[in-house]
Every structure is written in structure tokens, then in C-alpha cells.
């Protein structure tokens, strides 16, 4: 993550344990659903799951377009 950003590639970390992401130094963070299924929710019907996934990916794209100076969490 940091190596990608180091060469100038904006990188968004979509992950569930935000404190770890912060500790290791991700600059753009999108909090996700759960550790074993960060971009899905098996308790929901497929269409609803895909809607969650879409929301997270749109958030990730928003994070990649954000001009930031420091570590930023792109929550709901």
C-alpha cells in the first residue's frame, strides 16, 4: 500500500480493521463490512449484497479523487 503511494499511485485501502490500516500507514481508508467478507454480506440476498459492494467501491473511487494531506477515513 505504502509502496504504491510512494511511487505516486493513489491507493485506497478497503478493510475492516481500520486501526490496523491506520497503524501501518494507509492514507486513504474505506471501512468495510467484516473481516471474512469485507465487500459483501452473506446474510443478505445477492442483490442487496451487490448494492453494498457498489456503495463501497464508489466510496473507494471517491477516496482516490480526494486531495488529502493526511490519513483520511472515508466513512458513511
Amino acid at each position: 500500500m505504502k509502496e504504491l503511494e510512494r511511487v505516486g499511485l493513489p491507493t485506497v485501502h478497503v478493510c475492516t480493521i481500520v486501526p490496523i490500516s491506520q497503524t501501518v500507514g494507509a492514507n486513504r481508508i474505506v471501512p468495510s463490512v467484516a473481516i471474512p467478507h469485507p465487500l459483501g454480506d452473506p446474510t443478505k440476498p445477492l442483490e442487496e449484497e451487490k448494492a453494498i459492494r457498489r456503495r463501497l467501491l464508489l466510496k473507494a473511487l471517491e477516496a482516490l479523487q480526494a486531495d488529502i494531506e493526511e490519513q483520511t477515513i472515508f466513512g458513511n
Binding site: L4, P10, T11, V12, H13, C15, P38, L39, L64
Partner: peptide, 10 residues
């Protein structure tokens, strides 16, 4: 020529 990365973690 990739412009941005989405990195997912569990």
C-alpha cells in the same frame, strides 16, 4: 499506466 489502486484486506 495504472492511475489508481483499490487494495482490499480481510
Amino acid at each position: 499506466d495504472v492511475d489508481g489502486v483499490i487494495l482490499t484486506s480481510t
